[in-house]
Nucleic acid binder design. Structure first.
Length: 480
RNA sequence: GGCGCGUUGGAGAAGCGGCUUAACUCAUCGCCCUUUCAAGGCGACAUUCACGGGUUCGAAUCCCGUACGCGUCACCA
């Protein structure tokens, strides 16, 4: 039997790193075992569904390369792949549970339920539904109906049962049914709740491994009860550790301490393979010394035995480093393509630009960038009309070697028949011979005078890309 | 509060009873390379695994308790 795994997001927002990581783990395991990876949209929350969220999710997954074998856009024999298109399917099972007495209509209002929860809480007990409408007579039901009350449908949770299941990451887990009140499986608007829909969908779509975040651990016993009531075999479960922010708290979508939406990473010039690599290591580790993994390597090595139980703290510094590794290894042309929009957005280049020149500029900085967006900041002095000298820069320029070196170099540059990295290098050598200054005393004044910065990349190439005119102008301003 | 899960350095983590004088990575700090600047190479960085008991010849690894953290208790997923 081939394995079938799924990622089932609710279309209520943007694809965030937690969702992408859950999807990735599902994908990796499915591919490792030669099975299928399915995308399904869990859109039972009509109030929170967002118009284009589903499209955003799919675009995000396509960008990451997590292609689904079945689901929206691609179809499949177990469709449809979103809950709102499956309402009639749920109806069949709702009717069955009702007919067998495993579910019942509940007419309690939101206010009544709220009061009940508060009362239980006050007594120190688990707030839960105590079964008010569990055994309504036909007369009582008609009375409620006549009064215009809308019914939700609740699952009748059996007393005194121990609900056990095995988790591939956490081992055997038990819950007591007494801690679980009769929960709603169909809302009063006729739409099933997540717990009900997800169970039916997983069973009908022949999902063999349910892999999701730890926040679903306490939902599992509720779902177990449904599998049992409908006579279905249980899938394997795996509950992934939560992703925590740098202060150890669960990542909330409103948390701005870290960048957490996939599209933001795309916009910042992160490479999808870096994101996948980093996400794979969030909670999972192969154990060896390797840090950089291709997708094929991840697929080959992934296993749930090596997923940790404790929360995984999102270390954005390490992600940045990893992205830098991928940028360094990437083809220059690819990075140039990604860099151009940033340069245009900064107003440094227009719609028409010299591709060869931009390409050299990007090449100059490629090995030192952690995100392609950094190109704008890094290369800003190439496009500035005036160079600003901060305190540190001024300190360098007031070194005793500065006036002599700058004047000599300016003169050399003006004489140069050709202005390129090689001739600049030779000119610098000549300045050294003529002035007697070398090393830091020679290079730093030139670097700072022309770029305004003490740090930068290869000086010869930097100057050649800047062009003779800018170099001479900047030097002349200081020599005066 | 009930239930559930966790707790290894500045950070991410490996470790599954002896091979651990606790991998690897990020960050930091040195050194090397480079006449400058980066990148790169090399090295340093937890005598100790939340705390207290216990089991064992032997524990970061197993058991119990305490503390702390997190998740969850919805007609949200």
């Amino acid at each position: 039997m081939t394995v079938r795994l799924r990622y089932a997001p609710s279309p209520t927002g943007h694809l965030h790193i937690g969702g992408a990581r859950t999807a990735l783990f599902n994908y990796l395991y499915a591919k490792k075992l030669g099975g299928e990876y399915i995308l399904r949209i869990e859109d039972t929350d009509q109030a929170r569904n967002k118009e284009n969220a589903e499209v955003g999710f799919m675009n995000g997954f396509e960008w990451l390369g997590l292609n689904w074998d079945e689901g929206p856009r691609v179809g499949g024999e177990y469709g449809p792949y979103s809950c709102m298109e499956r309402l009639d399917i749920y109806q069949t099972y709702t009717d069955q549970l009702l007919a067998e007495g495993k579910a019942f209509h509940c007419y309690c209002s939101a206010e009544e339920l709220e009061a009940e929860r508060e009362a239980l809480s006050a007594k120190g007990e688990t707030p839960r539904y105590m079964g008010k409408c569990r055994n309504l007579t036909a007369e009582e039901r008609s009375a409620h109906e006549a009064a215009g009350r809308k019914a939700s449908i609740r699952f009748r949770v059996p007393d005194d049962q121990v609900l056990k299941f095995h988790d591939m990451i956490r081992g055997d887990i038990e819950f007591e049914s007494n801690g679980i009140g009769d929960y709603v499986i169909v809302k009063s608007d006729g739409i099933p709740t997540y717990n009900f829909a997800v169970t039916i969908d997983d069973a009908l779509m022949k999902i063999t491994h349910v892999v999701r975040g730890e926040e679903h651990l306490s939902n599992t016993p509720r779902q177990l009860l449904i599998y049992e009531a409908l006579g279905w075999a249980l899938p394997e479960f795996a509950h992934l550790p939560l992703i925590l922010n740098e202060t150890g708290k669960k990542l909330s979508k409103r948390d701005e301490s870290i960048v957490q939406f996939i599209e933001q990473y795309a916009e910042l010039g992160y490479l999808p393979e870096a994101i996948n690599n980093f996400l794979a290591l969030l909670g999972w580790s192969p154990g060896g010394e390797q840090e950089i993994f291709s997708m094929d390597e991840l697929i080959a090595q992934f296993s749930f035995e090596r997923v940790q139980k404790s929360g995984a703290i999102f270390d954005s510094g390490k992600l940045a480093w990893m992205n830098g590794q991928y940028i360094k290894a990437a083809e220059l042309d690819r990075i140039v393509d990604l860099a151009i929009p940033f340069l245009q957005k900064a107003g440094f280049i227009g719609a028409d630009y010299d591709r060869a020149w931009v390409s050299q500029l990007v090449e100059l900085y490629k090995d030192g960038m952690n995100a392609v967006s950094e190109i704008a900041e890094l290369s800003q002095m190439f496009f500035a009309t005036d160079v600003a000298y901060d305190e540190a820069a001024q300190a360098v320029l007031s070194e005793e070697s500065a006036p002599t070196v700058l004047a000599a170099f300016r003169d050399q540059v003006q004489e140069l028949p050709d202005f390129n990295a090689d001739t600049i290098k030779a000119a610098l050598k000549d300045v050294q011979k003529a002035t007697g200054f070398k090393g830091k005393q020679l290079f730093m004044p030139v670097r700072v005078a022309v770029t305004g910065q003490e740090h930068g990349r290869d000086l010869n190439i930097t100057l050649s890309l800047l062009g003779r005119e800018k170099v001479v102008n900047r030097l002349t301003q200081l020599v005066q």
